[in-house]
Simulated scan of single mutants.
Amino acid sequence: MGAKWIKISIVYLVIVLAFGLFMHYTIQLQWKATHAHIGVIGWLTTGFIGLIYSIYRQAAETRLAKAQFWLYNLGLPFLLIGMMMVYLDVPRWLFELFVSGGGIAVALSALLFFVNIFKYVR
Rank of each mutant, 00 (worst) to 15 (best):
G39H: 10
L76G: 02
M1W: 12
A65F: 08
T34W: 08
A60V: 01
G42A: 02
F48Q: 08
V16Q: 12
T46C: 07
S109A: 15
A107S: 15
W93K: 02
L111F: 13
I15A: 13
W70E: 06
F22Y: 14
T46A: 03
E96I: 11
L44I: 15
A65Y: 11
R122W: 03
N73R: 12
G103A: 10
M85I: 05
S100G: 07
F98K: 04
W70I: 05
L76T: 12
G101L: 03
L88H: 05
N116Y: 07
G82I: 04
M23Y: 02
V90G: 00
L108W: 14
I27T: 08
A107Q: 09
L51E: 06
L88W: 13
T62M: 09
E96T: 11
T45Q: 02
H35F: 12
P77R: 12
G102D: 07
G102F: 04
F22A: 00
A107D: 10
L111V: 14
G50E: 05
V90P: 01
G102H: 08
G75F: 06
Y56L: 02
V14M: 10
H35E: 09
A3F: 10
L29T: 14
V40H: 05
Y53I: 12
G50T: 04
L108F: 15
L108M: 13
K7L: 15
W43R: 10
F113C: 05
W5P: 08
F78A: 15
L108Y: 13
